[in-house]
Amino acid sequence: MSVLYAEPTPLPEPKPSLVALLDPRSRVMGAVLFALAVVAAHGLAALGAALTVAVVLAFLARLAPVPTLKRLLALDGFMVVVLAMLPFTVPGSAMFDLFGLPASSEGARQAVAILLKANAVTLAMLALLGSMEVVALGHALGRLGVPERFVALFLFTTRYIAVLHQEYSRLRLAMRARAFRLHSSVHSWRAMGWLVGMLLVMSLERSERIHAAMRCRGFTGRFHLCDDSRAGWLDWGFGAAQAASLALMLVLDVS
């Protein structure tokens, strides 16, 4: 899967973005603190400021605008149902009537707050974490004190997602060569069930080979994290900027 492992490109590498220069650990901590602060905030002013911070982060990380917007829209599609009902279910002063149902401004305000929160967190997450290689995230989690076995599971999983996606594409190609097309039918669903069942059986056999190969190289279940990234001046600067922006949000929220 190209999302997980970027293909090497012959083009000269562009200068890394400011976010890419940060230590992965500061990016993880930054994302978590930002999300916690946003979820805890109430005021629209504070949430607007949070969304601005997230947009700035997205620019600093040089996220591609079109795919990012598509992702945010997909997220909003999820919430439309829940949010569209809020003005009608939250009691308060009526803003307008729809088919005799009063829509309250309090409900609309809450819907806007939720929309701001969800988009701010998702955008910041895509900017700080989504632009990072997943292996770097795994190592950062490990060095932030997440249990070793969880990190090992995470790193192995990301590795095999790429491998198994290839395998899946191969099996789908074989099905297509036999004129299989996905329809809304029990036949299609069962065929896909067999496909995933087959994938599970094949991957179990693969995992036995992996295990044998790893044991042969002295694997005892420990996964060594051999990077020694250190927090530099950029990380302290980022931490300071992050602290300042969160403090600003807090002030806006209280006032």
Binding site: L153, L155, T158, Y160, L164, S203, H211, T220
Partner: peptide, 18 residues
Amino acid sequence: APEAVPKAAVLSAVFFVA
């Protein structure tokens, strides 16, 4: 078990893909 981590990871990768 530590030795079972690769197996669990391969299976969870299948589920992510599916």
